[in-house]
Simulated scan of single mutants.
Amino acid sequence: MASKPLDMSVPVMPAEWRDFVALTKPRVMSLVVFTGLCGLLVAPGHIHPVLGFTAILCIALGAGAAGALNQWYEADVDAKMKRTAGRPLPAGRMERQSALHFGVGLSFFSVILMGLATNWLAAAILAASILFYVIIYTIWLKPRTPQNIVIGGAAGAFPALIGWAAVTGDIATLPVLLFLLVFLWTPPHFWSLALFVKTDYAAAGIPMLPVVSGPKTTRTQIFLYTLPMVAAAIAPWPLGLAGPIYGISALILNGIFLYLALRVGLRGGSQDENMAPEKRLFGFSVLYLFLQFGALVADKWVL
């Protein structure tokens, strides 16, 4: 699906700083920054606090750049969806070209600063995460396949790898497991949201799984993806990569997640407008990731 120009009948107002902040998707960025920070804090070795702060800043700027380029490309799609119609571009508060320049500028700045401040492996992974989100997910997968969020979930899974690499200059088993955790967490998290906003995606012509395959298949897939996610989440403990604080937290958090996912899965093709189980799973899934990564940091710094 080619990107289309916005309706020129909508007046474009001079952009304010708040609009540029909105382009970076700050709510999404908070989770990205947190997982990147956790990857940095649990990595072996030492990094100067100033350089550590710079690395996290680069992760935030890179995530913001990806968000801005996503909104630049999808401005016409965002205009068709209730939950995104108020964004700066579809609302006519910013020129589309400004969003493009802002996103490209942030991308180059974040990658170069990461390389100069830490190492070029961390910078390369940051660059890969931006390109993956913009080109592989936004431009290629999202408008073409209901599996878009499955493969595209890799984009949000990179920060822990980046944080680790910023300290060590290499990649090890633990950050790979953290990558897999976020990668496998993304489908249950996102599809639980998509189930109760599927009319938005249908109106915009986006082939999300609930639109293409229906609620029953989506709910089944949510539960099935939860199983390997749970395995990836618990694995660091028996492998000796994390201690009891993380292990006990992982058992509790994943037990709750599995229960909520099972409740969603058992609903099958129910057309209940309430969507209470899906909303509970979506809400917990955000808290889950914060607590799971937080437990990993506590495990290292408390024991």
Rank of each mutant, 00 (worst) to 15 (best):
K216S: 15
W164P: 09
I59R: 01
K300V: 15
M114H: 00
A155C: 02
A172K: 12
P228A: 07
L89N: 03
M94G: 07
I252K: 05
P244S: 15
K4F: 11
S30R: 13
G283R: 14
I252R: 05
F34V: 09
Q221M: 13
L262K: 14
D19G: 13
P49D: 04
L57D: 00
L113Q: 01
A60E: 00
G105T: 04
Q292T: 15
G205I: 10
F196N: 08
G67W: 04
T54F: 00
K198V: 11
W17N: 13
A298R: 04
L195Y: 02
A123N: 03
T54Q: 03
L37Q: 05
L181M: 15
A203P: 05
Y137M: 05
L61T: 02
Y133Q: 01
A154R: 01
G39M: 04
T186R: 02
V33S: 08
A250P: 06
V50T: 11
F109V: 14
K80E: 11
G115E: 00
V167R: 08
P11N: 09
L253A: 07
H101N: 13
R263F: 04
L177H: 11
R267A: 15
A154Y: 02
F257R: 07
L253C: 09
G265T: 07
A154M: 12
G64R: 05
N70L: 07
Q71K: 12
F284R: 06
F132C: 00
T217P: 02
L113H: 00
T35R: 06
G163M: 03
Y225M: 11
A55Q: 00
V167F: 12
A128P: 03
V12I: 15
F282E: 07
E74D: 14
I162D: 01
L224Y: 14
S30Y: 12
I151T: 05
I151Y: 10
L209Y: 03
L6K: 11
G243W: 08
W237L: 13
A203W: 04
H46R: 13
Y246W: 12
S129A: 12
A99E: 05
L131A: 15
G269R: 03
P44V: 09
P236L: 11
P143K: 01
G156P: 03
Q271I: 13
L195W: 01
C38A: 15
E278S: 08
Q147N: 11
L131C: 13
P228K: 10
A250G: 11
F257E: 07
P207H: 01
D299T: 07
K80I: 01
P49S: 03
I171E: 04
W164M: 09
